[in-house]
């Protein structure tokens, strides 16, 4: 008996994508290296806790302690974001181009399956993997900081949700690039896009600090091209009370409410991912393989 079920085909591709990540040891290596990272971070927090939790006095010292704890949390979240971003790029740059280059795609795409279903399945599979990874790694960093040094976290579910959006932005971009570009070229594109996003965030935050509107506008335009840093800053603004943190972007500088991206920018980031996936299906549909 046969069913003509597009959702079933999408889920079949998603499941195959997840299985590939598992079989190719991507998951195993990510788990081991993340465990090493968290162990090191936890060790650092443990020794910091001795000073932060037992050496304090009342008044200004409490404010300093909260600021230092927030800074320690930020120090954990910045590399975690970097690791997740690189994982997103490495896991997805070859997802379609690699299969076309090797010929693996031929036997699949000659089946009664729409190319849009393959793109969507890849997005769901890799998206589920990356969202899970971001939840576990970022969540573990936040939990460790809250437990060890009583970092002043607030609105952490919303912050975590936004942190899962960061790898999805890169995934959408990588998926789109993968439908047209060779794997290596796509890898360069996505890594450069990440770098541009970070530098754009840096310029916007410095612009906000020195009240330079041109720099702020430049940063906003960069965020429109790659809204990664904007999402990261918004997540940090939800997570940590205002005024505590010296640097609230992946660029590591910047501060204040003026540097906090708007909710509209977050909606833009969601739309950015959706448009990237739609464009990927369109490009792949028109491509001769």
């Amino acid at each position: 008996m046969r069913r003509d079920d597009g959702l079933s085909r999408v889920l079949a591709v998603a499941a195959l994508t997840l299985r590939e990540a598992s079989r190719r040891k991507i998951v195993l290596v990510a788990v081991l290296m993340s465990a090493a990272f968290l162990a090191l971070y936890g060790l650092g927090l443990h020794y910091a806790a001795v000073q932060l939790l037992t050496g304090g006095r009342m008044g200004i010292d409490e404010l300093l302690r909260r600021g230092a704890a927030a800074q320690m949390l930020y120090i954990g979240l910045f590399p975690a974001s970097f690791i997740i971003a690189l994982a997103a790029v490495f896991a997805s740059v070859s997802t379609i181009s690699g299969e076309v280059e090797s010929g693996v795609a031929y036997a699949v795409l000659a089946r009664p399956i729409r190319r849009s279903e393959v793109v969507l399945g890849k997005f769901l599979g890799l998206g589920a993997l990356l969202v899970s990874y971001a939840l576990v790694l970022d969540g573990a960093v936040i939990a460790l900081a809250a437990w060890q040094i009583h970092a002043p976290v607030r609105l952490w579910p919303g912050a975590l949700a936004l942190m899962t959006l960061e790898p999805l932005v890169l995934l959408g971009l990588a998926l789109l690039g993968s439908t047209r570009l060779p794997t290596l070229a796509n890898g360069v594109l996505c890594t450069a896009a990440y770098g541009i996003g970070v530098v754009g965030g840096f310029i916007e935050q410095i612009g906000g600090l020195i009240r330079n509107d041109t720099m702020v506008q430049l940063g906003i335009v960069t965020s429109l091209l790659t809204p990664l840093d904007a999402v990261h800053r918004k997540a940090l603004s939800l997570l940590l009370p205002g005024g505590l943190l010296f640097g609230q972007g992946t660029a590591g500088v910047g501060l204040g409410e003026s540097a906090t991206p708007s909710t509209w920018m977050m909606l833009y980031a969601v739309g950015y991912v959706a448009v990237a996936v739609l464009l990927a299906t369109r490009v792949l549909r028109r491509r001769d393989l």
Partner: peptide, 29 residues
């Protein structure tokens, strides 16, 4: 339709039964 491409390559990290199970799902079996 069944198709054997000239430059045949398959997901080498799967077993034949696993890959055929995937194709079966795509075919709606």
């Amino acid at each position: 339709v069944g198709f054997l491409p000239e430059n045949f390559r398959y997901q080498e990290w799967l077993t034949p039964m696993e890959l055929l199970a995937f194709h079966g799902r795509v075919l709606g079996m």
